[in-house]
Amino acid sequence: MQIDLSNRSAIVTGSTAGIGLAIATGLAKAGASVVITGRTQARVDEAIAAVRKVASDAKISGVAADLGTAEGGAALIAAVPQTDILVNNLGIFEPRDFFEIDDAEWSRFFDVNVISGVRLSRHYAKGMAERGWGRVQFISSESSIQTPPEMVHYGVTKTAQLAVSRGLAEVLAGTGVTVNAVLPGPTLSEGVSEFFGKIAKNEGKTQEQVEREFIQTHRPTSLIKRLLSVDEVANVSVFLASEEASGTTGASFRVDGGVARLIL
């Protein structure tokens, strides 16, 4: 299968690193005109340069804005009024004792992980429907279907993304716009790597040891017995953005290495 997105435009939120950057790179390699987003111009510029290192002819640009706020969302929409593909990847996570998570932190997680995607989908999906073609994705998590006790607030926001994704797919029935969710398992993104690196330093272990112990202790049901790479997640996102995925909407795709013990 040859995925060709040369006539399509895409926005990937939270794409200066990790899964978002891998998705932006994959879409650019498939020929799409991609907009990278991040909170600072310096980070956006670095990400654009990183994509061009592996895809010198990439059609790529960037917008610096804090999409966890209404002002940031408005800034992106003003700079890029329409797109064919919207990947709502922006997200934050932090292990935290449930009893120490106050109202403000719950609100912050919802603003960044849920409302940012709602806000952008409300604008961009309407234009997609009017044009008769579009792809909307929410990068959720396996934590959406098995809430992690070490960060309940994160899991709840990821579950909310699934509800938004399915509901929006219902709203857009028959328009030519598909809406799907991607559920990565534990993935070795820059943020996760940094997190494990700190643990390794504090415990006098190698990072590889910490990663293995995490899988054994916290995700023992993993069938691949390792963390995923960002490219493994991006590959699914790129497929869902393509014409070849035209028959798939309202669905949730697990890229979790078999962590969730489900048959659906």
Rank of each mutant, 00 (worst) to 15 (best):
L168A: 06
A64V: 05
V238C: 07
G73I: 07
N89F: 03
D103T: 09
I19H: 13
N7P: 06
A22R: 10
L21W: 07
S242Y: 00
G127K: 00
I48D: 00
R131G: 05
I19W: 08
G191P: 06
R8K: 15
V44I: 08
G185N: 10
I101H: 05
V51D: 01
K225I: 02
E142Y: 12
G247D: 14
G117Q: 08
G176H: 05
I215C: 11
N89M: 03
G62R: 08
H123N: 13
D103N: 12
L262F: 10
E150C: 11
A163S: 14
R254N: 13
A173W: 11
M128Q: 01
T37Q: 13
S61T: 15
K29Q: 09
R108H: 12
T13V: 05
H153G: 03
T159E: 15
L86M: 04
D102S: 03
R219D: 12
L240P: 00
L67A: 04
K59G: 12
A64Y: 08
G257Y: 00
L120R: 02
V51C: 00
S242L: 02
A169M: 04
Q207F: 10
P186N: 15
R8S: 13
E243F: 03
S61K: 14
I36H: 08
T157Q: 04
P186I: 14
R39W: 01
I11K: 01
A55K: 11
Q2H: 15
L86G: 00
I139N: 07
T25H: 05
R43L: 14
A49D: 13
W133Y: 02
V236P: 00
G204I: 05
R254W: 11
I36P: 07
S56K: 10
G91H: 03
S144Y: 07
A42C: 01
A173M: 07
R43C: 12
A241D: 04
G68H: 02
A32V: 02
S229W: 06
V152I: 02
E243N: 09
N89T: 08
K201I: 08
I199C: 06
I92Y: 10
E46P: 05
G72H: 10
A58Q: 03
Q209Y: 05
S9A: 14
S33M: 13
S193L: 12
S140F: 08
D102T: 03
L76A: 03
A251S: 15
G167Y: 09
G18L: 11
E243L: 01
G72W: 02
A17T: 10
L240Y: 04
D45Q: 13
A47I: 10
P186Y: 12
V35Q: 05
L5A: 12
E243H: 07
R108W: 04
E100I: 01
V34I: 09
A50F: 08
